[in-house]
Design a protein around this nucleic acid. Structure first.
Length: 301
RNA sequence: GGUGCCAUAGCUCAGUCGGUAGAGCAACGGACUGAAAAUCCGUGUGUCCCUGGUUCAAUUCCAGGUGGCACCA
């Protein structure tokens, strides 16, 4: 029997969680979350983690499973999920994945280059150098260590340059030599289902969800995480705006508006990415029956 | 009813001593392979309230109209 992975994806706030619960119940299966922030156990309200009841009824994986203090990335996600799938496929033929982290979805579906894990010391020293001297000397260094990638990279994007340098320095080989664009083949079928609705409705849902987060105590949660604000995991919509408020840079009202605005921007960015993925079949949030029918057809193939 | 002020982008408003216009916010598009809810790049979307007048040329000046605000009755 062949194994299948249903991936339910879409912009933040569109209603993936509710749908995934119903689909998981229909197939009597478990859910793998594909969300680069819900994965952290310390961040709950601001990342809109599903309720207790849902989590208690349907087994979820990669939700609240890691710590903000751990280094995490798309490659680790790929490896860990593949391992988990292997385990779960001994019990199920169909597994549901749901979430909106575009790079994580692609890492799992298509794979990602094999690179050594980033050495924290090297990263920190490069970041420090960037903060002190700016981007120019780093560009210069990259042009020497990896002229090929230097031609390719967005020279205004310091993160890309820093990462390439990390790899060059760690391996003594050009970063570009690792960029093989693998397109790994998986031993399970992938069915990608996109959920989207009218823009106005989506924004309305996002805005209301932010209000709800505040009602549930987002401010208090963020205050508790304030000491760790430098961690990458906390460079996240819903938290960093409140950190600005705690540091008296903006008012609470401004922070709330910023969170709404940045969530809307994030949703747009997700849609830009998904729009160019030809493997996605799109549905509206209410189309549960149609989605299940479509999945049924795909599973027959 | 009278007088004054205002009418420009989705919103708040600049501006053009007459040559068809620009900021902030909002909105929209794009890139993306170990920090990705990150990071980076890009776009002005307009009957300048309406009708007439003056003028080579009116969003700008003039008159009237309409709408809004303020004050006086």
């Amino acid at each position: 029997m062949s194994k299948s992975l249903i991936i339910l994806l879409g912009p933040t706030g569109v209603g993936k969680t509710d749908l995934s619960e119903e689909i998981a119940k229909y197939y009597h299966t478990e859910i793998i979350s594909c969300d680069s922030r819900q994965i952290y156990k310390e961040m709950k309200i601001g990342t809109a983690v599903p309720d207790h009841e849902v989590l208690a009824t349907i087994p979820h994986h990669f939700i609240q499973s890691h710590s903000i203090h751990d280094y995490y990335n798309a490659s680790k996600f790929e490896q860990e999920v593949l391992q988990k799938l292997d385990q779960l496929y001994s019990k199920y033929d169909v597994i549901l994945m749901t979430g909106g982290s575009m790079l994580y979805i692609d890492a799992l579906c298509k794979g990602i280059d094999d690179l050594p894990n980033v050495d924290t010391n090297i990263r920190n020293s490069l970041v420090k150098r960037f903060e002190n001297e700016g981007i120019e000397p780093l560009k210069e260094l990259l042009s020497q260590l990896d002229p090929v990638y230097f031609q390719d990279v967005d020279l205004k994007n310091h993160k890309r340059i820093l990462h390439a340098l990390e790899i060059c320095l760690m391996t003594s080989q050009p970063y570009s030599s690792f960029r093989t664009n693998p397109s790994k083949v998986r031993n399970f079928n992938i069915i990608k289902i996109g959920i989207n609705c009218e823009r106005e409705l989506l924004y309305d849902r996002i805005n209301r969800r932010v209000d709800l987060m505040f009602a549930e105590g987002l401010e208090k949660e963020a205050l508790g995480l304030f000491p760790f604000k430098k961690l990458n995991a906390l460079n996240t919509v819903g938290y960093r705006e409140l950190f600005d408020y705690f540091e008296n840079r903006i008012t609470l009202t401004e922070a709330k508006e910023k969170i709404k605005s940045n969530s809307r921007k994030y949703a747009r960015k997700q849609l830009t990415w998904f729009r160019h993925d030809p493997d996605i079949t799109w549905f509206k949030p209410g189309m549960k029956e149609e989605i299940i029918f479509y999945i049924g057809q795909e599973l027959q193939k």
